[in-house]
């Protein structure tokens, strides 16, 4: 913790309020301060509506705070254009969603190739890397399958492979096991832990399942838009 390098992602007094069809604002996040160093495995817990996903969206540059600041590698990102933020997401962030969000008209292989295309990765290289990633998540031989031909666990594996496509520094998983049975939940968590460890990546995992959260080394608990507990496990 005494590392002189700035945290990978940092929120400084970040708030997010919405105007949802009424004159009153709904405050989803209240002046959150948070620093996530590189390589950490962080869980974010809390009841529904407490602001977990909003926090994740701010960290992943899908959204901007209405007040406060988000920094990446010590640099504020608030002044970046949509295009620059998209580029940062494309290169630096791997998203894993609860509902998988694979593109239904693409095969598993094409879904994994998708984030590589805008970076100009040559076709052969794309295909090779996507095939390797699918093999890494245990889906070798399923490259040509469309999402509707895959089970929920397989779809989430494809989503993990897609999240790893551009070798991001941080993986953001929003309830990644929320739609899975216990067997697939264990398998996906094992997979996430393994890829995080192998790639020295940061993993931020939003969940309201304590068993899932227990896998993390750092535990954030949220309530009413605020982080009410930030606990790190000691030891290995």
């Amino acid at each position: 913790m005494n590392d002189a390098r700035p945290p990978l992602v940092e929120l400084a007094g970040a708030s997010r309020a919405y105007v949802a069809g009424s004159p009153e604002q709904v405050v989803a996040l209240r002046a959150v301060d948070l620093a996530i160093p590189s390589g950490e495995f962080v869980s974010v817990e809390g009841p529904s509506g407490c602001g977990k996903t909003t926090l994740l969206n701010l960290v992943g540059l899908l959204d901007s705070p209405t007040s406060g600041e988000v920094r990446w590698g010590g640099r504020p990102v608030g002044s970046l254009s949509d295009r620059e933020r998209a580029r940062l997401r494309l290169r630096g962030v791997g998203f894993i969603f609860q509902r998988f969000y694979l593109l239904p008209t693409l095969t598993a292989l094409e879904n994994v190739e998708l984030p590589m295309r805008p970076l100009g990765v040559p076709r052969a290289e794309r295909t090779r890397r996507a095939s390797e990633l699918l093999g890494e998540v245990g889906l070798a031989g399923r490259e040509r399958a469309f999402p509707h031909q895959l089970s929920g666990g397989e779809e989430q594996r494809v989503a993990v492979a897609r999240a790893l496509a551009n070798r991001p520094g941080i993986l953001l998983a929003d309830e990644p096991t929320g739609e899975l049975d216990s067997g697939n939940t264990r398998a996906i968590l094992d997979l996430l832990e393994r890829v995080r460890h192998d790639r020295s990546a940061t993993l931020v995992l939003v969940t309201h399942n304590p068993e899932v959260a227990a896998r993390a080394r750092r535990h954030l608990t949220m309530r009413d838009g605020s982080i009410v507990r930030d606990a790190r496990e000691t030891g290995t």
Binding site: G60, L62, D82, R83, A86, R87, L88, R89, L90, R91, V93, F95, Y101, L103, P104, T105, L114, P115, R117, P118, R162
Partner: peptide, 16 residues
Amino acid sequence: RRSIGIRRALGIPGRS
């Protein structure tokens, strides 16, 4: 809309 949202979330450029 969802597919477009997914693409944009992944960082696919708008021009694509």
